[in-house]
């Protein structure tokens, strides 16, 4: 892919926009279509575009698989941790009403954290899948 000048220039322009859009979808998901699942896959596809054009090695140096492994587990832990937190605060598991002074504030905070956890897990798992599939040496 080293010689495709047009591809490289366009990808360089597009990748930051895609990543920014993913963050918008993640954090604006309460007011417009979006949320953790969508943001996660959009973020991952932005990075995958980079990896397709500039090569897997550079991408792996920027986002090492080890870091992604930790991230994909920590997203699930963040989600489960929010539930545990509400349990400790006196409510039911994943009952966000207890997280803040008023129920709607608590719901806001809870949904924000939970969607963040989903987004982190989805994005890092999708990238790990891509790494695992393309990083493997030619079979046989």
């Amino acid at each position: 892919m080293l010689h495709h000048t047009v591809l490289r220039v366009i990808a360089k322009l597009l990748v930051p926009v895609i990543l920014l859009f993913a963050l918008y979808v993640q954090f604006h998901g309460e007011y417009s279509p979006g949320g953790g699942f969508q943001a996660g896959v959009i973020f991952a596809s932005g990075i995958i575009l980079y990896a397709l054009v500039f090569g897997l090695d550079d991408t792996m140096r920027a986002l090492p698989p080890g870091v992604l492994k930790i991230l994909s587990a920590s997203g699930v832990l963040l989600y489960a941790g929010v539930g545990l937190d509400t349990l400790l605060l006196g409510g039911n598991y994943l009952d966000y009403d207890w997280l803040a002074d008023s129920p709607t504030h608590g719901q806001h905070l809870g949904i924000f954290l939970v969607e963040l956890g989903v987004g982190i897990t989805v994005a890092s798992t999708m990238l790990l899948l891509y790494y695992a599939f393309t990083g493997r040496e030619q079979g046989q």
Partner: peptide, 27 residues
């Protein structure tokens, strides 16, 4: 369905990786 789509691609990836391993074992 929103969650099913993302779970679907994850499980499809497991299936495809099994295919890759089958190809390595049997050619």
């Amino acid at each position: 369905i929103l969650t099913a789509i993302v779970v679907g691609v994850a499980t499809t990836a497991v299936a495809l990786s099994l295919v890759i391993r089958i190809n390595e074992a049997y050619g």
